[in-house]
Design a protein around this nucleic acid. Structure first.
Lengths: 354, 354
DNA sequence: GTTAAAACGGTAAACGATTACAGTAGTTTT
DNA sequence: AAAACTACTGTAATCGTTTACCGTTTTAAC
């Protein structure tokens, strides 16, 4: 019987001298006689009994496991989301089954397939930011799904929790305008090349535009320009990826265009570091000659000199809120999309236009 | 029947005109007649049938899920391990159930408890680096466990996959010695205060010493000093935590001791950044006055000026190797501890002693 | 063509829980 | 004191698989 192996409910019941139904009821919070409660509790303790989740799940009850698909795990953005999600999940005695789609559509697809056979109550999902990220019908077998960190335009049928990236673009630009800058360059970042031949303006009208955070930021940039009656100049837009070297390259790109600019809005603090590095190498002073705005408020922004002015977005909170929204959905509560605010953090990489 | 709900094996069997045992055997790679294979395959396709993992696990077969406990997820070190582990797991059609112990013993304990009720085939586990991290008997219900990123001394009964941190300490120190430095300060980092009243020397003899990577590095530091016949000076040791500010503080600490030093070995690139920041503010030139060595070879090391000389450790590989070791263990293969090499990456924060 | 052996398929009994249903106390009502 | 509830508890069916066991078919051997 109790041959060192894992105890079952039947053994608990036998030891407590009750039926297994009683044990089950006790564990599920259904009222049983206090006298029996004690006996059951004692038996569970003595055997160190832990219910078998697999057996529970087979009857369709909750598995207390949430699937989570993120485009990467190494980026501080996503690891903070994950940390927030796991911590919130633990509060509800849930666990997170995690996978990285590595920013690739086909891997994402594989993962969805893999997860659909796993024991999860549903999914918290950040679709890859590539134009072809569309969810096939029935992929999720009507599991509850929360989409995290993407604007709701692309998948209107799902519930979303996301940062107000458009507002982030607006805040950046508006702040620079308030400092007197007029020629504000916009560095858009994409993980993969997008709309090769098209202008960024045209990209805005693509059906999947909402998955690209840089496009959201760009909308905010346009909002601010319009509000301030500053004309949009497509020559001030540079497209690059998200790394340090990409920032360096993008800065070189802009310099090679030989047009005047007095500030740059970037899509990430890492890119901003690259930009600063290149501009300085050309003898351009930050912020006196050019103001630079980062995005994300990563640790690096307060390590480098000058410290970066940036847009702070609370990724940890995004993870927490996603789990909360997920559980609300699971409990059948009506819920609407949740937008998290971003805020401007002023440091030393921006200054008044002289 | 097929009311839009999830199809079961029985439905597949019915549609294929075979018994459910045959379907099961097909799915488990047991040979059945080619004729039936086709019929079953067709039925599975048509119904888009996916086996129910919960039902499978109940019979004790593999769940293809690996539990993973890490002290944090936001640190680039651990997120790289996780990324490596998830990618390797996916290759074997496994998934990772992840939790962060937040560097706290009690949370770690809760997670182990929580995981022991979950459907996992075993655990890849990085114990928190605090002196009280000891695994209780029977915590894992004889699940297979791989310990990752810690030296094997503390938990000799488990299998380990870890970086050769002692070699890292040796490489750093040896390199500085080869540049002609003699007064090499050692900055030890701990997530939590350790051995309050004791010297670091005494800490080495603590029973749980192996979980502290800085202690391993320190051993390497001593190895190198001894080899070069340079006398150890306890005044050159500073204890701090792992952050940028901790590096700043530690540098101030050292300066306040008013003793000569010509190089510093740190426990992390982030700390090294703080050190550089403080020293420079005091008019000390890096590397001409003092050489600084980071640890970990994080992205930030090649962003700041001067770019950091550092010890590279492949955390992604650590994750990959951990999963490999785990699967070997699961398959009953005899295996020994796996040590991953680290290597010195020379950049601009170190130079010859003038 | 008969017989023995091998290969495979089907039936049914697990696995460890949840839960409908029926049964047995104990309590209240008349 | 009998009847009608109430409040539990226990029995057994059930979830979707795997797998031992037995029976049938196929193949090989003579």
């Amino acid at each position: 019987m109790n041959n060192g192996s894992i105890p079952t409910m039947a053994e608990v019941a036998a030891r407590a001298g009750v039926s297994i139904a009683t044990v089950s009821r006790y564990l599920n919070g259904i009222k049983i006689k206090p006298k029996l409660v004690d006996k059951v509790k004692k038996a569970i303790d003595e055997l160190d009994y832990k219910p078998n989740q697999a057996a529970r799940s087979i009857r369709g009850s909750r598995s207390h496991t949430i699937g989570m698909i993120l485009p990467q795990l190494e980026h501080p953005y996503f690891s903070a989301v994950l940390e927030g999600a796991t911590q919130e999940a633990r509060k509800h005695d849930q666990t997170i089954l995690v996978a990285s789609s590595q920013g690739k559509r086909d891997i994402e697809h594989q993962i969805i397939h893999q997860f659909s056979r796993s024991i999860i109550d549903g999914l918290i999902y950040t679709p890859v930011a590539t134009g072809d990220s569309f969810i096939e019908e029935d992929s999720f077998r009507n599991l509850p799904v929360i989409i995290t960190g993407r604007s709701p335009s692309v998948y209107p049928e799902f519930n979303h929790v996301f940062q107000n990236t458009r507002a982030g673009g607006y805040l950046s630009t508006n702040y620079l305008l308030s400092l007197g800058h007029k020629k504000i360059a916009f560095f858009a970042s994409f993980w993969e090349p997008i709309c090769e031949s098209n202008s960024i303006m045209e990209c805005l009208t693509l059906p999947g535009a909402g998955v690209y955070s840089s496009l959201e930021r760009f909308r905010g940039y346009l909002d601010a320009l319009k509000e301030a009656d500053v004309e949009y100049d497509s020559n001030l837009v540079v497209i690059c990826s998200y790394g340090f070297k990409d920032g360096q390259q993008a800065a070189r790109d802009l310099l090679s265009r030989c047009i005047a600019f007095d500030a740059i809005v970037t899509a990430s603090d890492t890119v901003a570091c690259g930009v600063i590095n290149t501009l300085r190498a050309q003898g351009i002073q930050i912020p006196s000659d050019v103001s630079i705005l980062g995005y994300g408020n990563l640790e690096i922004g307060s390590i480098i000199t000058p410290q970066l002015t940036s847009i702070h977005q609370d990724m940890f909170a995004l993870g927490v809120e996603s789990v909360k929204a997920f559980n609300a959905l699971l409990n059948g509560e009506a819920l609407s999309n949740k937008i998290l605010d971003v805020k401007l953090v002023v440091r030393d990489s921006t200054s008044k236009k002289l």
